Amino acid sequence: MPEITRPVKAIEVNYVCDKCNHGMMKHSGGMDASTGLVPHRCMICSHEQNFKWVSYPKIRYVGIDEHGD
């Protein structure tokens, strides 16, 4: 099948800290290959939390006429 192109826009996706409800979570280490867990730390309160198979902040691409929801 031939390639096709379309314009897209980049949407930044962040995770708000579950502890302080203000800071954004940022990955603080690499993914553990055996568990898929990625360590993160809140940029305000330093709360630590792991996410499985995802690293924040991340970028999502959507079509120009689509919403990033």
Score class of each variant (00 low, 15 high):
residue 27 H to R: 10
residue 48 E to R: 10
residue 41 R to D: 09
residue 14 N to Y: 10
residue 65 D to G: 15
residue 3 E to M: 11
residue 46 S to G: 10
residue 49 Q to A: 03
residue 53 W to S: 07
residue 20 C to D: 06
residue 30 G to S: 13
residue 15 Y to N: 10
residue 12 E to A: 13
residue 42 C to N: 04
residue 30 G to R: 03
residue 41 R to W: 09
residue 49 Q to S: 05
residue 54 V to M: 14
residue 68 G to E: 01
residue 52 K to C: 00
residue 63 G to A: 10
residue 36 G to K: 02
residue 50 N to I: 02
residue 7 P to I: 12
residue 50 N to A: 01
residue 48 E to N: 03
residue 27 H to L: 03
residue 65 D to W: 12
residue 45 C to F: 14
residue 16 V to Y: 09
residue 6 R to F: 14
residue 24 M to V: 01
residue 52 K to D: 00
residue 51 F to E: 02
residue 6 R to Y: 13
residue 62 V to Q: 14
residue 19 K to G: 05
residue 8 V to L: 11
residue 62 V to L: 05
residue 46 S to W: 05
residue 1 M to P: 09
residue 68 G to P: 02
residue 56 Y to V: 11
residue 40 H to Q: 05
residue 41 R to K: 04
residue 15 Y to C: 10
residue 9 K to S: 06
residue 57 P to N: 04
residue 67 H to I: 13
residue 29 G to I: 07
residue 11 I to Y: 08
residue 3 E to L: 11
residue 40 H to D: 04
residue 23 G to S: 07
residue 30 G to W: 03
residue 41 R to N: 08
residue 25 M to G: 02
residue 40 H to K: 12
residue 48 E to A: 04
residue 67 H to L: 15
residue 68 G to L: 01
residue 17 C to K: 00
residue 3 E to S: 10
residue 40 H to I: 12
residue 11 I to W: 14
residue 24 M to G: 05
residue 69 D to K: 06
residue 61 Y to K: 12
residue 62 V to W: 11
residue 39 P to D: 10
residue 33 A to C: 04
residue 63 G to V: 06
residue 53 W to K: 01
residue 54 V to T: 04
residue 50 N to Y: 15
residue 31 M to H: 07
residue 59 I to W: 08
residue 6 R to P: 00
residue 43 M to C: 14
residue 25 M to I: 08
residue 5 T to V: 15
residue 63 G to K: 13
residue 44 I to L: 12
residue 31 M to G: 01
residue 6 R to D: 11
residue 32 D to G: 01
residue 26 K to D: 04
residue 47 H to W: 15
residue 24 M to K: 15
residue 54 V to A: 12
residue 45 C to K: 12
residue 46 S to P: 08
residue 7 P to S: 12
residue 37 L to H: 11
residue 9 K to P: 07
residue 35 T to S: 06
residue 53 W to C: 00
residue 19 K to I: 02
residue 67 H to Y: 04
residue 31 M to A: 03
